[in-house]
């Protein structure tokens, strides 16, 4: 029981991180129908900027937090303005390759800026782990989980309750019709990019204290986040959270009850099974046809 609980905690910690990253994917997909393969790089930028601003420049925690999110959002906006919008005949696969190019570019820039070594940062609050029935949980894990829930709730009300949120969704459903109704669709896409990049930065900020951050951390995390988003159903915020937690817990249980070396294989196998049973993901509305 104690073991099981520890696996669960471990899974929830990882899973919440996957969930934040998946939210970034979902956010962008919902408003533009695009998968951004540079999402993991936003996470990396978030983590490294946070370490620099907080540990390096010793800014206060909230200030460093906000500055990091703002900075990474600007990177997202630049990416949209310079790269995505310039494509004349956007075929989804072309946009994917552009984001892959962008991810390599960002990784290269980060390597020049932060060097090739890993960096670590102190925890947000006191660092003594809680003990629940013999299993331990870091306060940082609770931070992560809490922030994920706050974000997803905020996102929920944003898309359902605000005019901007509704406008964004309208753009995704039919860009031309939305434009005819007077919605500035280009601004909406820009906003979506900024928000999803900011969300990636939040992911990075949350990971920085529990793990090690380096310029090449983005790819693995982006991949896991992508899986989580697919698992939960692309375009569904709650699905992203569910998918992330599920993936994290599956991985941890895979370690516990099978083999740690096979954990990636196990997680992906289950993922394929789920996709086979429910091709649109757990909370996905319908199979989406692209390409």
């Amino acid at each position: 029981m104690q073991e099981f609980l520890q696996y669960l905690f471990s899974g929830v910690t990882n899973g919440a991180i996957y969930a934040v990253i998946a939210l970034g994917f979902t956010m962008l997909y919902k408003s533009t129908g695009l998968i951004n393969f540079a999402q993991g790089e936003f996470v990396m930028l978030g983590a490294l900027s946070m370490i620099t601003l907080w540990s390096g420049f010793e800014l206060s925690l909230p200030l460093a937090f906000l500055l990091t999110i703002a900075g990474v959002s600007v990177v997202g906006i630049i990416l949209e303005r310079l790269a995505i919008r310039s494509v004349r005949k956007p075929h989804p696969i072309v946009l994917i390759i552009i984001t892959i190019g962008a991810s390599i570019l960002l990784r290269g820039v980060a390597m020049l800026g932060w060097g090739k070594d890993a960096h670590s940062s102190p925890a947000f609050s006191r660092n003594e782990p809680f003990e629940v029935a013999g299993a331990t949980l870091l306060p940082q894990s609770l931070w992560i989980l809490g922030i994920v829930l706050v974000i997803v709730t905020a996102l929920h009300f944003f898309t359902r309750g605000t005019l901007t949120g509704k406008a964004m969704q309208a753009c995704a459903i039919n860009k031309r019709a939305a434009w005819l109704l007077g919605i500035p669709s280009e601004t909406m896409v820009l906003l979506a990019f900024a928000m999803s990049a900011g969300m990636g930065a939040v992911g990075g900020i949350l990971i920085a204290p529990i793990s090690m951050s380096s310029y090449d951390m983005g790819m693995t995390l982006g991949l896991k986040g992508f899986c989580a988003a697919m698992l939960g159903g692309l375009g569904s915020s709650w699905g992203a959270v569910l998918g992330g937690l599920l993936l994290g817990i599956l991985e941890a249980l895979g370690v516990g009850f099978f083999s740690s070396s096979l954990k990636d294989g196990i997680a992906f196998l289950l993922l394929l099974l789920i996709l086979y049973v429910r091709p649109a993901g757990i909370l996905g509305a319908r199979a989406v046809h692209r390409f």
């Binding site: 190019g101 390599i104 570019l105 990784r107 290269g108 820039v109 020049l112």
Partner: peptide, 9 residues
Amino acid sequence: MVVYGLVLM
């Protein structure tokens, strides 16, 4: 890496 990414884009 920077140049490679740029060329692709």
